[in-house]
Design a protein around this nucleic acid. Sequence first.
RNA 1: GCGGGUGUGGCGGAACCGGUAGACGCGGCGGACUCAAAAUCCGUUUCUGGUGACAGAGUGUCGGUUCGAGUCCGACCACCCGCACCA
Length: 870
Amino acid sequence: MSTERYNAREAEPRWQKIWDERGIFRTRNDDPRPKYYVLEMFPYPSGRIHIGHGRNYVMGDVVARFKRMKGFNVLHPMGWDAFGLPAENAAIERNTHPGKWTYENIATMREQLKLLGLSLDWSREIATCDPEYYGEQQRIFLEFLKGGFVYRRESEVNWDPVDNTVLANEQVIDGRGWRSGALVERRKLAQWFFRITALAQELLDGLDTLDRWPDKVRLMQRNWIGRSEGLHVRFALENAAPELPREVKVYTTRPDTLFGASFLALSPGHPLTEALAANDPALAAFVEECRRGGTSTAEIETQEKMGYDTGLKVAHPLGGPHLPVYVANFVLMEYGTGAIFGCPAHDQRDLDFARKYGLPVTPVVLPPGADPAEFEIGDVAYDGEGTLYHSGFLDGLSIPDAKEAVAAKLEKQILGNDAVGERAVNFRLRDWGISRQRYWGCPIPIIHCESCGPVPVPEDQLPVRLPDDVSFDAPGNPLDRHPTWKHVNCPQCGGPARRETDTMDTFVDSSWYFARFASEPGTAPLQRGAADHWLPVDQYIGGIEHAILHLLYSRFFIRALKKLGRVSLEEPFAGLFTQGMIVHETYKDPEGRWLFPEEVEKREDGTPVKAGTSEPVTIGAPEKMSKSKKNVVPPEIVADTFGVDCARWFMLADTPPERDSEWTSAGIEGAWRFVQRIWRLVGDTAALTPADIARPESFGPESIALRRATHKLAAQVADDVERLRFNVAVARVHAFANVFGDVLIAARKAGNVPADLAFALREAARFLVAVVAPMVPHLAEECGTLLGGTGLVAEAAWPLVEPDLLVDDTVTLPIQINGKRRGEITVPKDAAPADVEKAVLELDLVAQALDGRAPKRIIVVPQRIVNVVA
RNA sequence: GCGGGUGUGGCGGAACCGGUAGACGCGGCGGACUCAAAAUCCGUUUCUGGUGACAGAGUGUCGGUUCGAGUCCGACCACCCGCACCA
C-alpha cells in the first residue's frame, strides 16, 4: 500500500524537465502520421498572466495531448501578439522602449505558461514584433496592393484624442475608443484600406461550410456582413442650378413602397449636400451641427431626427407627386448611396421625420384583414406583410410581387442614358482601415514621392524596420518626428521622398500568424507547402470577444492569399470553440480598496476579514479576473501549493467549457482530493497486484463488471474530449473511481486476489492513468512509474477498447404504468418485445395495478422502457 | 428596435434521437478511525407527508401534442449576449 501523498510540487517540475529534454512536443512537418493542428488564440504580452488566462490553453492542451495519444502528428504552437498600444503607453510611463518592455513581458509570461505543463512546441514560438515576422507581413501587404486588395483614400476616421490614433469602426465602442475610453472625434485623413468588401459575398457563403463553428459566431458574422437585396433608383432633379448634378440615386430594399414616398433625404456627407452647402451658409451650418452629434448608443437612441429643406424637388419615377429633397442627420453616407427616399407609413425613421416636418404619410401596404377605408398610421410605422393599395399598377399585389414589379418596370424605364432602376446588393460590411499613427506596429512599406506618388518599397529592402532610437516625450507618432527615418529617396525616380509613417492595425498581425506556425523554425515565414499541409487549424480555441473582428479578418486574409497564390485553402479555422472566462469573487476593505484573495481570511464564524486583522471585508459578485480588481490568482501560487494539475483539473471540471467558471478555494481543494485519490487508487493497485500479470483465460463476474466499466470509461471519455465536453469527462472519471475504489476495497478485504481480478485491477489502473493523462499530465507520469511503466505516458497510445465490453448482456428496463414509474425488470439485452411484454405482465406490481383487467396498451421500447396503459 | 441564447436541488451542473430527472462534484448532516485533530473512508442529502415500506408534487409560468415531455409546438415572464438611424 502506498502511504505517501502525491507530491505535486516536487513531481511537476521534474516531469516538465524530462518532457523538455526529450523534446517530445517538437513537431516535424515530414512526420507521416495524420496531422492535427490545435491552436489557442495567442496572448498579448501585457505583463503577467493569472490563472484566468490559463483556461483556454489548458483546454487546447487536453485536445493536443489526447490527439497525440490517438496517433496524430499534433502541431500545438505558441506565440505573442506583440505589437500594440500598451507597449507605447508603458514606454511613456516608465521611460523605456516598447520593444524592451514587450520582450521582458514575453520572457516572464513564457515561464508562467511553462508552469502550466502545456505540451507546446516552443521551437516554433514567434512574436509579431520580430522583424522576420513583420517583414513577411509587409511582403503580403505589397502583394495585396498589387492584387487590388489594398488601396488608399481620404477618409473620415474615428480619431481617438487620448491615444492620438485612428480607430477602426470596430474599435469604437459606444462612441469611445476601445482602449482609452475617450470620446471619439471625426477627422479626414489619407488612409490605407484592405478591400475586405470585395470578398463580402464569399465570406458570407463560406460561413455555411464552417460546420464546426458555434452557430452564434456564424450568425454574428452573417449579421456583421449584413447582405441586403434591393434596388437603386435614380430620381431626376427638377429645379437644380445648372452646375449641380441632374439626378439623385437612392438605394432601397422596399421599392414596393415607392408610391408612399413623401420626401428624399441626403446624408450630410453626400456630394450634392456639399455642393449645395458651398453656396448656402445655413445648410453648411446644419451639416456642421450634424457632425457634432455624438455616436454613442444613448445619443443615437435619443437623437432627434433633424432635416434641412434644400428647396430642390425630384420627379417621382412612377408618376406620383414631386418630392422635396432634404438633408437629414439620420442618413448614413457609408451605406448604400448616401441618399434615401422616405416612406413614412412603412419606416419608423421616416415616420418620425415626416411628423416633425409635416410631410404626408400615405400608407400603401394594407395589413391582412384591415379595412382600407379605416386603416391609418399613428405613431408607429407598419412594416409587416400585407397587400399593396394606393399604388396604381401595384394595387392588390403582395409585397414580394410588388418589389419585383417595380424593379422590372424601372429597369426598362430610361432617364438620360441609363435605366432608372437597377437591382443591387448591399453589404453592411465596410472596408478595413489599417493605418495607425503609432510607433509600435508593423511599418507600412510605402514611400511617398512628390512626382511618383505612393511607391512600394522594393522587395530587397524589406523588412522596413522600426528605428530603435525613438522618443515618446511628445504626443503623436514618433516615426513622424524621427529626425532621419522617414527621409529616403524614391525607389522609382531617385528623388527625395518620405516613408509612410503609419503602421498597421495590430489585427493585421493576428490575421495570418497561424500560417506562420506551419513553417519549421528557421525557414521562410509563409510557405505554401507547409501552410497547405497544416491548415486549416483543426481546433481553434479562444474568447467570444473575437467572434467578429479577428476571425473575419483572418478569413479574409486566407481567401486573399489564396487568390494571390500563396496558399491553397479558403478557410483558416475548421473547428472553432469559444471558451468562457474564469471569474472570481471580489474583495474590498472598509475604505473601499480592492484586496487580493490571499489578503482575505475567514474567521471561525465564517465572516471574512482582512488577513491578520479584524477589519471586515466586503465580498462582491464574481467577476472576470482582472488586475485592476485584484481578484486574480497567480499560477505560481497554485503551482507551489496544490500543483498545476489541480488547477488544470479544476478548470476542466464542473462547468461546461463555453460558460464562465468561478474559481473558488473549495473547488481547488476538491481537485486536490481527487488527484490524491487517483494516486492512491493506482498505488494500492500496484501494491496489491503483480506488475507482470498475464491475461487469464477467463474472467469471473466481478472482473467482467470492472472491465466493462474500465473500457466504457476509455470509450466515453474519448468521445467527451472529442466534443470538448471536459466537464462531463471529469464526471465520468469520478464515477469510475467510485466503482474502481469499491472493487479495490473488496479485494483488499478478501485478502487474496485471484489472477483474473488482479489483471482487471491492473488494467483499470492503466486505463485510468491514460484517460486522465491529457488533463493531469504530471500526475499521470508519476502514476505510470508507479505501475512499473518505462516509457512516458505523454507518448503512450490511448487505451485500446475491446468493443465486446461496451455492451451489456442484460438491461434493466423501467416499468411505467400510465406514464408513472412503478418498478423495473431486467431482461436479456436482445430480448424480443413480445417476451418482455409477457414477462412484465407476469409481475405482481403490474397485476395489482391492472386489478384483473386487461391492459389497454403496452409499449415496449427495446433497451429503453416499458409502459403499461391500464 | 432587430437578432440570438439561457432558465433543472442549498450551489456548479448531468440527462445521446421524446423513454428511470437530479449522474458527478461542492456544501450540509450523521457515522467509522483517532486520546484529540488533520487526512482518509462509509452513509445520507429535490420538496411535502409518514418512524417506515410508501404516497403525492417537481426541470421559469400557462396551455398543447404524445402511451410517455427537462427535451417537441404555441403564448408569456425573467435574465444574458450581439448588432443598432444599414433605408
